[in-house]
């Protein structure tokens, strides 16, 4: 179980990364490596080159910019979790991050790496989707910002073009009058979610996002429903997600979790409207 051969490119600037992605066929960005490395060792992924971006200082920043927390591509999950303002500025992100892997993998894994990988069960893409965040991608051709709903296009596939890198992700900060809640269930602690729920609510608005069921995180606006309608709406939502059977759970079980956990998450979010 050893990787196939590849060149190792240590980028010293964002320009280095852009040039490498545009010039080298089948190159892959290596950030924290917590997902890419097992794929390399299992030879599921066989890039010609890996581009290590972790020494680029400009990518290592967490900053609040225009109502959003901008997290650079080299920011490790543990660093964001330890960011003192996190809980105050975005409680949903603070609630979801401890569910990402284990402490030992969060110490290396990056926030943007999780977005780039777009695992349908992953927490960070779910939070981006729930909050209507965005992903900042760039290449020699220029930079653009893609809304989360447009960015995650399917199983492990995103709107990032082959020559583009993710420079940062943007999590909108907490809105006054809003409540946030996150719940997840997996077989073991630290496992991929069978179902994960993120809710963003205000007195007039209900937004529920579900991970682990469809081929990507999916959010639905459930505003304007009374309690009885809400249960029906979540059931409709659950069925729309095209749940699958796999080794760990049946489709029917996943829908059950969406219904039960979904409504609980919305309740919990309502309880903490600020």
């Amino acid at each position: 179980m050893k990787p196939a051969q590849f060149d190792y490119l240590r980028a010293e600037s964002i320009g280095d990364v852009h040039r490498a992605l545009s010039e080298v066929k089948d190159a892959r960005v290596l950030a924290g490596g917590q997902t890419l490395m097992p794929m390399l060792s299992m030879r599921l992924a066989r890039p010609s080159s890996v581009i290590d971006i972790m020494r680029i200082e400009a990518l290592g920043r967490i900053e609040e910019k225009g109502n959003a927390i901008r997290v650079g591509a080299a920011v490790r999950q543990a660093k964001l979790l330890a960011w003192p303002a996190l809980k105050d500025r975005q409680p949903l992100l603070a609630a979801a991050l401890p569910w990402v892997g284990h402490a030992q993998t969060r110490n290396r894994g990056t926030v943007c790496g999780s977005a780039a990988h777009a695992d349908p069960s992953a927490e960070i893409p779910l939070v981006l989707t729930a909050l209507e965040g965005s992903v900042e991608v760039s290449s020699l051709r220029g930079a653009r910002k893609v809304a989360a709903a447009e960015f995650f296009t399917g199983l492990m596939t995103t709107a990032r073009a082959d020559d583009e890198m993710i420079e940062a992700v943007h999590f909108p900060v907490r809105q006054p009058g809003h409540g946030y809640a996150f719940n997840e269930y997996g077989r073991r602690h630290g496992d991929f979610a069978l179902v994960a729920c993120a809710a963003v609510v205000s007195r007039t608005r209900v937004r529920l996002a579900i991970g682990g069921v469809s081929d990507r995180p999916v959010a639905r606006d459930l505003s304007g429903t009374n309690d009885e309608e809400l249960a029906q709406a979540i059931n409709d939502f659950a069925w729309s997600l095209e749940a699958r059977d796999d080794l760990h759970a049946t489709a029917s079980y996943r829908r059950q979790l969406v219904r039960e956990m979904g409504i609980r998450t919305i309740r919990e979010a309502r309880a903490c409207i600020s």
Partner: peptide, 18 residues
Amino acid sequence: TIQIDGVPARACLTLAVQ
């Protein structure tokens, strides 16, 4: 698991050159 620059990390998910 070893400590890389003070924090625990999986050595198997790390390249030596990193």
